[in-house]
Design a binder for these strands. Sequence first.
RNA 1: GGGCGCGUAGCUCAGUUGGUUAGAGCGCCUGCUUCACACGCAGGAGGUCACAGGUUCGAGUCCUGUCGCGCCCACCA
Length: 866
Amino acid sequence: MQLEKVYEPQRFEPHWAQWWIESRIYQVDTAAAVPGRTFSLVIPPPNVTGSLHIGHMLDHTIMDVAVRWRRMSGETTLWVPGSDHAGIATQMVVERQLAAEGLKRRELGRQEFERRVWQWKEEYGGRINNQIRREGASVDWSRERFTMDPGLSRAVRETFVRLWERGLIYRGEYMVNWCPGCQTAISDVETTHEAVEGRLWHIRYKVKGSAEYLTVATTRPETMLGDTALVVHPEDKRYLHLHGKTAILPIVGREIPILADTLADPAFGTGVVKVTPAHDPNDFEVAKRHGLPFVKVIGEDARMTAAAGQYSGLDRFEARKRIIAALEQSGELVKVEPYTVNIAKCDRSKDIIEPLVSTQWFVRMKSLAEKAMHAVRTGQIRFVPDDREVVFFQWMENIHDWCISRQLWWGHRIPAWHCRNCCQTTVAREEPALCPHCHSTEVEQDTDVLDTWFSSGLWPFSTLGWPDDTPDLRAFYPTSLLITGFDILFFWVSRMIMLGIEITGDVPFREVHMHGLVRDAERQKMSKTKGNVVDPLDLMDQYGTDACRIALLISAAAGADIALKMDRFESSRAFANKLWNASRLLFMNMERAGITTWDPNQKVESLSTEDAWIEERLNACAQTLDDALKAHRYHEAAQTLWDFVWKEFCDWYLEVKKLRFDSHALSVYERMLRLLHPFMPFLTEELWQRLMSMSSAGHPKSISLAPYPKPAGVALADRNVEGFRRVQRIVTKAREMRADNKVDPKLELESTLHLRDSLLPQTELSFIESLAKLKITQTLMEDGAGESAPPFTLLLTIQSQANGASRARLEKDNARLQKAIDSQSRQLSDENFVAKAPPHVIESMRAKLTEYQAQLKKNRELLDKE
RNA sequence: GGGCGCGUAGCUCAGUUGGUUAGAGCGCCUGCUUCACACGCAGGAGGUCACAGGUUCGAGUCCUGUCGCGCCCACCA
């Protein structure tokens, strides 16, 4: 069994990715699930339009570590994959494709357009799935779902109807965020706010029947055409005499009332507000309070309507320019000042949102939010890291109703039918043949579709078969964990919690782990326009998937954003290569020793020095992993493994196993591979399969089905690991001395080793001789050296024992020791400290102090010898 | 206007409940084709943990304030 000299992940990663699927390694048999021993999670469904980006890869890698760890730990582990129909995003992609053919959506008609989107989905929708396979994500592909599958569509309809029946959905004319680019209403969370340098235009309105003028400050002069009132604060003394009077709208000449309302802030601008009920959310509320008329001057296309008179047909910003010009000319523009305005933009198209009044469907959020907050407050759902809860609560407490209807063609059609005859609306699970109110056949389904997040909000249970009471639902709901980016807390996580509780009566998941955003090396957000997007497929090509996974994991501290630095990927590839070569060494030694089979279950009666030590280290590693993984500290887990593999297994254990190889090394190695498997699944599967092909015992089909090594607890702590630690200390000391004295690395040096407590066994001595290239004569220190002597001293037979470099080291060492001794003796002589500090702290400090003092004394002797 | 987070080695960042001489990767310096690996090995340099107070026997870690940076939320024209 010979390994190739170089680690080439391309040679085996695709193979295992395919084999895992073909062999159905991750396909879950629900019938075999033991209650209480299950672990489940759903993948955040990527958009069908999507292709993999680095954020997905981080997300999936963390999930995969959690999933593989749980699976190996013996739990029936289900990871459900799938994708989201992504209403607006997908519709836009297909529209763009049509545009390339010279076609327009409206020319095709709704039915044909939908057919084209489905066709597009069939053709390109699976692209991301291949990429997910490439990442090594151990999902159960037999359970793949799409948010517009028949089953999930049924879940959507059922949910809608239930919410309607509970009075939690309503339809009405309200102010909504209208995106002129997408030609649809969008919800509040789909808008982003941006501070822009704008202007505050001061316009004067003549008071009717008086010489007086009222000056109004506005950031949007074009809306004045739709003004139907002016408002002053009820207690604003400047304007008390004008309450109930009428003003004349410039340009238009319309007479509008001057009203008192607390909307106006006397301290802002002139204290007079113009009211445009059809184009401003505040004004909308004022208008409803006062029964004001609505004049819609801007249309869905962001152009001025017929009501805008001479400006009709103009784009809203062009109209603004002309209106300002006109006001300037007539002298009604009294002042212009710079002003920073906060404008709302569409998250997707970046168009400036136009607040418009239109008839839409809404979900009443208040009671849903209260239940959601209760679930988090009572610990039914745990946030990791938990400081995210604050953000969650703040948002939930200020929640607004959710506009769920979209004027799109791609999505779940709203299950509501309008009767043309009696104008009543019927919400139903199935299309009614007749209007239930008037029995007319003239019923038509509502043309709107639902917000994409409505269906993804059901994802944790709709994918498990809800509304049917399926075995999957019973076995795996609530899901155990949700892992996702913090950026979709409001879009998705919150909605899932609210809908899950409302609809299923239980939380959708017990824990939420939210990670940060992956940014570029300069901490900039990645975006196509900036051109700083890093394609994970390129990274996987270049470094191998396993290396990318470990690089991402080790960079991903709890909740923090990640700055993507390529040196991380390079060192991770080096790490994978290191493991590969360590394996190569083991296999070569096996061959050399003539071992053709080995027994993984072989019990060793007494462990050798190095084995006792590595067993203890392996156990400590397993313990840290167990703690870290339970607490979702994935970066700590990855770092722990890295250090174990490189610093302990390779640098020490293998170095001595070279000198005396035995099959126990294989046992350690095999467990190490299993510990590593969730992090680097491909490489460990490859190596494990090679190793197990020589096993004399049976073994699982895949390493991912083998048990995860459990920490043995304190039992191992008692084992004698001091023997090997002493070897390490002496070797390190010898290497320092050699380096200081610039001894030729190839030269074997005569040396004398004085030991305080006992002579070294022959094996340990030979380890030191070999690792430090020494020929050692060992002796015991004279009697009486006792505690005041260091545990050992080493003398090299070279010309100068304390040349410049050695002197410098000794002096530096002494300074450091002296500092430690000073601070420790100060503390130990402090009555307060001795009285209050815990005994173990004092105890270990005393021990250290003794050791330092011995060392310092010895160092001084060496220096004095000069 | 609210809320959250960050400031630790030249760079990018770890550091769980306060406990002895603060860590990693990269970079840097010295030496090495040591029969697994130069994607390597051995040795080394480099930090008053942003600043100022406080709590404590003991603070990178807890509290208060200051400065600098980032993000999220918000219907003040």
